[in-house]
């Protein structure tokens, strides 16, 4: 049998595969880990940000500016004007429900996932 696929066929196939890749990334890519983090200042919502865009955020708190770093789907306190640096020591958080907080500066960050794995973290 002579198989007579044309150049246009190839275009269609490549486009179809690209479409599939796009669909998987779009609808499945972010389903497992936390996608966003909710930042609260003084218990009030300050903003909700995506964990997929690497960036540094300066959040003004009670004492001064805390620096939040987002990298590769994780978030952490990079710096904070408190003495103990408890928040910085908490390190990276990435699972839905995980929390990092700088109490002196009254800033907290909570990772929110589609369905958080845990309703609460005990420590």
């Amino acid at each position: 049998m002579k198989f007579s696929a044309t150049r246009a066929d190839a275009v269609v196939l490549v486009a179809a595969l690209a479409l599939l890749a796009f669909l998987y990334i779009k609808f499945w890519g972010d389903a497992t880990r936390g996608e966003q983090a909710r930042i609260l200042v003084g218990g009030k919502e300050f903003s909700v940000i995506s964990l997929h865009q690497d960036q540094h955020l300066n959040i003004p708190g009670a004492l001064g500016v805390s620096v939040l770093e987002i990298h590769a789907g994780r978030i952490r306190f990079a710096d904070s004007p408190c003495h103990g640096k408890q928040c910085v020591h908490t390190g990276w958080i990435t699972l839905g429900g995980e929390v990092a907080a700088c109490l002196p500066n009254r800033i907290s960050v909570q990772v929110i996932g589609r369905e958080p794995r845990f309703d609460a973290i005990n420590f």
Binding site: T6, A8, D9, V12, L13, A16
Partner: peptide
Amino acid sequence: PGAGLSALGYSVLAAL
């Protein structure tokens, strides 16, 4: 001209 599809291309398009 040159945009001719074979059964394969049409079929994938149709299914999608």
